[in-house]
Amino acid sequence: MTRQERTAWGFVLPVLAIILFVFALPTLLALALSVTDYSIYALADWGALRFVGLGNFADLLTTPLFWRALGNTALFALLGVPMAIGTSLAAALLLHDASVRWKPLWRVLLFAPYVTSVVATAVVWRFLLNTRFGLLNRALDWVGVPPVDWLGDPHASIPAILLFVTWKIFGYNMIVFTAALSAVPHDLMEAARLDGASRWTRFRHVTLPAIGPTLLLAAVMSVAGFLQIFAEPYVMTLGGPAQSTTTVLYFMFDEGFKWWNLGQASAVAFILLLLILALTFVQARIGRRYEWL
């Protein structure tokens, strides 16, 4: 090993050690837990612990709530990712326009929800979404739409939470997109305009390819984020009504930390890890095809 290599290892080792201790080791331990029936009885007496092989996984596949949680999570991701990224991109494009004044002020205002506390904003949003005197229903009433029981109707609860989540997180990707947009080559844009390309064609053929890699990054992060959505349903609806906002992570939290069935909860965590890995892999493949990576 050369001196240079030794120095390099010296810099990398602390980080590697931390990754090993806070990521690799816990993952392995969780895998070990997931093949046992670790429950509160094992907390009382290790003698009650048994090896159950893939029993937890088989058990999960026959648990209706697990499937519903998967379905709810999929719905959150399917609706939420386009909603969040679309809003971010739209806001970034608006802010990017040369005619907009006080850009820094707008950026701060739109970014602010991202850095406020989830619990505090959830309380405010619960009031906004209140069926009887919420502002949202007032506004709907104004345009003649009957009141929606946002957080009490199992069909409206996911859209209601998504409204809140989108408002909360779009500022982050908006900033990322703003940075990407400023890197779109000006001369290309000018050339397209001179050639008579419409607004949409310029967006589709000049802007989009230029911000492609950023878009991919945002998509990967958003998908992973929405698959792990937990805090918002936890503070807004406690997983209800009729478990319509119980997500996979919420299910895992209940099993593991509320009822101490850590064996079962680790199995859930593992399935979720595999799901996220698989989806990220697919996204990476798509990105590579468009030469964004």
């Binding site: 619960r126 009031f127 209140n130 069926t131 009490g152 609806t237 406690l238 209800g240 009504p241």
Partner: peptide
């Protein structure tokens, strides 16, 4: 009313 505790603030 079919309401949850989160709805009746």
């Amino acid at each position: 009313p079919p309401a949850l505790s989160t709805e009746v603030q």
